[in-house]
């Protein structure tokens, strides 16, 4: 009689659930497999992304197709630039030549006038380097322009 009463109550509850709530038959856990059939791990995916950064695929621009007129324009620009560089180079070379000749002249005069000073000036200085404190010119000045507080 007891069992019969339990059965009847269970039946009752089931009928109640089906009436308005679906039973909980599926649970979603954290995804452990990647989408798709390839099934690559996140580590592999990361390597693929990193490699694709270096590869040219899909990243190269369209080829530059110049018309005849544009090509002539481009070549003219290049020739003008090369000529300009030649002029600068010539100026630099003539200046260096002049400075070398003047140094040569100074040394010959020094040899005649004071041989001891000439010997001193001729001491080998190979291995001499630019000092670390020397600054290379930049496009814009630094915040502190000059280091005045140098103490010997």
């Amino acid at each position: 009689m007891l069992s019969a009463s339990v059965k009847s109550s269970q039946k009752k509850s089931v009928t109640m659930m089906t009436s308005w709530v679906q039973p909980l038959n599926q649970v979603r856990y954290k995804r452990t497999k990647t989408k798709g059939s390839s099934g690559i791990t996140p580590q592999t995916q990361r390597i693929i992304t990193q490699l694709s950064v270096m590869s040219a695929r899909k990243k190269q621009p369209k080829m530059l197709k110049l018309s005849k007129e544009d090509l002539i324009k481009h070549q003219t620009i290049q020739t003008a630039w090369n000529t300009y560089q030649d002029i600068l180079q010539n100026e630099r070379q003539t200046m260096l030549k002049l400075q070398y000749n003047k140094m040569d002249e100074a040394m010959t005069v020094l040899k005649q006038v004071a041989p001891k000073l000439y010997a001193d000036a001729n001491i080998n200085e190979s291995g001499k380097v630019f000092p670390m404190e020397m600054r290379i010119p930049t496009d814009y000045p630094p915040r502190k322009l000059w280091y005045y507080d140098y103490k010997k």
């Binding site: 100074a106 000036a121 005045y148 140098y150």
Partner: peptide, 30 residues
């Protein structure tokens, strides 16, 4: 910083004296 021990130029005066030029760069200080 002295560029070199060698003079970069000379001016010979009429009285026979010689002016030698030594090149140098200032790096810091006043």
């Amino acid at each position: 910083w002295t560029v070199s021990k060698k003079p970069a130029g000379v001016i010979k005066s009429e009285d026979g004296s010689c002016d030698f030029f030594i090149k140098s760069h200032i790096l810091a200080g006043k």
